[in-house]
Design a protein around this nucleic acid. Structure first.
Lengths: 124, 124
DNA sequence: TAAACCACTAACCTAAAGGTTACTGCTAAC
DNA sequence: GTTAGCAGTAACCTTTAGGTTAGTGGTTTA
């Protein structure tokens, strides 16, 4: 059984559905920052400005946008403590973010392998 | 052992290297079309205009650019048959494209799962 | 009392990705 | 002899992602 083609054979429709799934994944976790944010949050919940310091190079505007996206997709929860003054906002990972484990792993493995290949070419 | 953190512990430097690997992967196979082209070519070599028909929605300009990228990264070979008139150009997958199998598989699996989750939310 | 921290947001700008239209010089089919 | 296919390329335009700067109203710290 081919992974990208649902059994028994791959029709145009089936292939397209498979490709859309890949596209969905790429859409949700793609971009420059999402993965970095998720990985940082695996360390533990963080407040906004903490996050901005941990995810080196990100601006407040972009961080804010990315967090909203991640929240919509169920990876991150925005927790507000209204008792504190001023309000304390914390961002924490949802269990759903764990479902990305395999994706991150395979991307990471492939990235390392590819980088080594390129290094070999430059310094054989 | 955590996947994104090389053993023994995750230092800032180690974490960053791991993230860069993920970034590399995302950079090389990301974007709207690369995956689609690779998947289509798994079916067998194709000529330029065949490809454009198979990868529905892509323009000649973009297809041309993407094929160049894919060639540079060793996924695709451009084969020219100069004997034929006019010249026949064929694009075929290189073995290196097979190294993406796991990445494609995990992205696909996750994409399907995520899509089902969203469907459940809309029609419970 | 001044300075810095908090969690953001608004307004603006740049660069890159991708899309559209039109065109090439050549050949084979109608 | 006209039309359609081939493998693209050039010039141009739009959209999107992301970056920059500045500022909000409150609070703790020096």
């Amino acid at each position: 059984m081919n992974i990208v083609t649902p059994p028994p054979a791959h029709t145009a429709a089936g292939c397209n559905a498979a490709l859309n799934a890949v596209g969905d994944a790429l859409y949700v976790i793609g971009g420059k920052w999402k993965m970095r944010i998720i990985v940082v949050l695996r360390d533990g919940s963080k407040r906004f400005n903490d996050l901005q310091r941990s995810v080196t190079g990100i601006s407040a505007r972009v961080l804010s946008n990315e967090l909203k996206d991640l929240e919509i997709n169920g990876f991150v929860k925005r927790v507000v403590d209204a008792n504190a003054t001023p309000v304390v906002v914390t961002y924490e990972l949802m269990p759903y973010a764990d479902t990305l484990k395999e994706v991150i792993a395979s991307l990471h493995n492939w990235g390392v392998m590819h980088r080594n290949k390129l290094m070999q070419k430059i310094t054989p």
